[in-house]
């Protein structure tokens, strides 16, 4: 076998044309998933057993099944129902991109809410007692004490989850979306050169991953500035 460098140089720009879609999938479902995660977290710590129960079942189901199956259920499965096809959501669910974003959001929301919960549980109980003793309300304690400290504690695990989400966006190619992976698969089908195409794309993803890690490293250092004795 020989490695066709020209082919890589030719197809790399084509694949990078899908970068925008990959980025859109990552950012939109990342943000929506985070909002969902906060809602699930609030349900879990609400003290209302039925809210807690619903959130727990949700998290259990979405963490216990493959993301690919979730994507297929949303994209191929939901249109089975008349009600879905006639609902106001149909314009979104008719589009593969909308379906991919929905599935990725539902999936990452479940994982991130567990990560945030880990952060909340890691907050020193003594600090909350000090807040109570100073007369702070439950809401004030959550906003000014629990939330900022839990955010810092959860950040390393959260950055790993964002990287997982990036890798999951590649599955959008299975429902006809032309993200970077989707374009690569088309090129491979035409040229039958999997080595060149997939390896070079893998490197693109790795650079993206390293960039994300660097970004989160900066945020971690900023949020952790009060944990270091020396400035």
């Amino acid at each position: 076998m020989n490695f066709d460098l020209n082919l890589i140089l030719e197809s790399l720009p084509q694949m990078l044309a899908g970068f925008g879609i990959t980025l859109k999938l990552l950012v939109v479902s990342g943000i929506l998933g985070f909002i969902l995660a906060v809602l699930l977290l609030l349900m879990r710590i609400s003290g209302k057993f039925y809210l807690n129960w619903v959130a727990q079942v949700y998290i259990y189901v979405f963490r216990g099944t493959p993301i690919l199956v979730q994507i297929f259920i949303v994209y191929y499965g939901l249109p089975q129902f008349e009600a879905v096809r006639e609902s106001f959501l149909w314009p979104i669910l008719r589009e593969p991109t909308g379906c991919a974003i929905l599935a990725l959001t539902l999936n990452t929301g479940a994982y991130v809410s567990e990560i945030l919960r880990g952060g909340v549980l890691g907050v020193d109980k003594g600090l909350l007692e000090a807040g109570s003793a100073l007369g702070m309300s439950a809401r004030q304690k959550f906003i000014y004490l629990t939330a900022p400290i839990a955010t810092r504690l959860a950040l390393p695990a959260y950055s790993n989850d964002v990287i997982s989400l990036l890798k999951s966006t590649a599955l959008a190619s299975t429902i006809t979306i032309a993200d970077m992976t989707g374009i690569a698969r088309t090129i491979v089908a035409e040229t039958y050169a999997p080595y060149e195409i997939y390896t070079s794309l893998a490197i693109v993803y790795m650079i993206f991953t390293l960039g994300l890690q660097k970004l989160f490293g900066v945020i971690e250092r900023y949020l952790g500035r009060y944990t270091r004795r020396e400035e």
């Binding site: 990287i163 990036l166 890798k167 999951s168 966006t169 590649a170 599955l171 190619s173 299975t174 992976t181 690569a184 698969r185 491979v188 999997p194 080595y195 997939y198 390896t199 794309l201 893998a202 993803y205 790795m206 991953t209 390293l210």
Partner: peptide, 10 residues
């Protein structure tokens, strides 16, 4: 750092 699906395809 590489999507699972790429590893499998490759």
């Amino acid at each position: 750092g590489t999507p699972e699906i790429l590893v499998i395809l490759l």
